[in-house]
């Protein structure tokens, strides 16, 4: 878990497909997105004005793929991490 994965997005920014550990997975249902939070007081080294959102909040996606459900974390525009899979 946790490694960086490659995600392809639709026109309105929703994941449609992603590659992980060599395999490709297709999203079969409309993805669900929400915003979760992080513990900046444990992780961050600075929290000056302007930096708040990026150390506090993180975008999450739950995708129904052809191989089951996955939860992805999307902390920065180019970073996608696999958080967990489940059925």
């Amino acid at each position: 878990m946790g490694g960086n994965i490659q995600v392809s997005l639709s026109q309105n920014g929703e994941p449609v497909e992603f590659k992980w550990q060599g395999a490709s997975y297709r999203v079969v249902e409309k993805p669900v997105r929400w915003f979760s939070r992080r513990q900046w007081w444990v992780e961050a080294s600075r929290v000056q004005r302007g930096i708040g959102k990026e150390v506090l909040e993180v975008e999450m996606w739950r995708l129904h793929t052809n191989a089951g459900f996955v939860e992805l974390m999307h902390p920065t525009p180019n970073e996608w991490r696999l958080v967990r899979t489940y059925h």
Binding site: W34, F35, S36, R37, Q39, W40, W41, V42, V47, G52, K53, V55, L56, E57
Partner: peptide
């Protein structure tokens, strides 16, 4: 929202992590 986290800690009289924080920003 980060400032709000600190205010929440002050209101709860507890350190961050020891109470339920706001869900996001």
């Amino acid at each position: 929202a980060l400032t709000a986290d600190v205010l929440d800690a002050a209101r709860h009289l507890e350190a961050l992590g020891l109470f339920e924080e706001q869900p996001n920003a």
